[in-house]
């Protein structure tokens, strides 16, 4: 890695395109957004840089705080559901016969080959009050109702007089179903990778020492795959927090997340400075969290060194 200093020109020729790309389409726009966030709108189209902190102060308005809060808890719960669903899936793939693995992985990755917009529209069709999911629930309701009639409880209508469709669209539940559906593969893959790497003899050793399957799962398998779980949490939580299309379509304007409000500032709201402050706020939080995490890791390392 020293040689790039000596061959500076070759290095320059090689990396200039990527640096130029990054600079032009990432850092420059980010800088502009950063400047906007200290600006004020003037008239319909102008923004004056006044170094005002007004936009940041507005982040503390109750409306915005509750928006952030909703985005966070929707993402946290969806991430948790994703992990809980994807762990067994990853286990099935990791323990499948070698010849089945590529096919099972393909099934997991297959949805990526369809555009997100199309998949989300498909979900609209499934989650609507007359959608497929409600058809299924209706069928289950009928079956349950019939079963109750058969055992002579038909007159009590324990399951209600008639089937009432569940409303998913425009509700947090619908948005969470969408988030889980879209980001599930992102959670399965890292967990699968960590399980695949895991030496099976750890599990066998645990059983051999007298542990039950459940205890082996909790005390050996989970801790030894925590790396995969952490990665899965990070790479599902972060894009969920910033997701736009899913709450936009499935939330029907009732379940806004941060990105929906940001979009409104840049479009109908025509308040670019506030939109910029909103956008950057997430970035600041991410930086702070990363800093805290590396601080924590550093302290842990120091402690281990002191002990070892």
């Amino acid at each position: 890695m020293e040689s790039y200093r000596r061959n500076f020109r070759a290095f320059l020729a090689f990396f200039t395109p990527s640096f130029a790309w990054l600079g032009l389409f990432f850092f420059v726009p980010l800088g502009i957004i950063w400047l906007y966030s200290f600006g004020e709108t003037e008239g319909l189209t102008k923004i004056r840089l006044t170094w005002t902190l007004e936009n940041y102060k507005r982040l503390l308005e109750p409306e915005i705080i509750s928006l952030f809060w909703r985005s966070v808890w929707l993402s946290v719960i969806s991430t948790a559901i994703c992990i809980v669903i994807s762990y067994p899936i990853a286990m099935v793939i990791a323990t499948a016969k070698a010849k089945w693995k590529p096919w099972l992985l393909l099934v997991i990755i297959l949805p990526f080959w369809t555009n997100l917009l199309i998949r989300t529209y498909a979900l609209l069709n499934i989650l609507g009050t007359r959608g497929r999911l409600n058809d299924l629930l209706h069928w289950l309701w009928s079956a349950g109702d019939r079963a109750l009639s058969m055992i002579g409880l038909g007159d009590y209508h324990l399951l209600g007089e008639r089937f009432v469709p569940v409303k998913f669209l425009g509700e947090p539940a619908g948005v969470m179903i969408g988030l889980v559906y879209v980001y599930l593969p992102f959670a399965v893959l890292p967990i699968y990778a960590s399980l695949e790497r895991l030496d099976r003899s750890y599990l066998e050793a645990s059983l051999d020492l007298g542990a039950s399957q459940w205890r082996t799962f909790r005390q050996i398998l989970l801790p030894l795959s925590s790396g995969g779980i952490n990665t899965a949490m990070v790479i599902t939580f972060i894009p969920m927090l910033g997701s736009f299309l899913i709450p936009d379509l499935l939330g029907r304007g009732q379940v806004d997340m941060i990105a929906n409000v940001i979009e409104r500032q840049f479009k109908s709201g025509n308040d670019w400075p506030f939109g910029s402050a909103l956008s950057l706020f997430l970035l600041y939080i991410t930086f702070i969290l990363l800093a805290l995490q590396s601080f924590h890791a550093m302290r842990q390392r120091k402690r281990e060194e002191a002990r070892g």
Binding site: S201, D208, A211, S212
Partner: peptide, 16 residues
Amino acid sequence: ANKRPVNMVFQSYAVF
């Protein structure tokens, strides 16, 4: 395995 009165030292040792 978890109910048998024998124990094993694995080839890879499998120390947790």
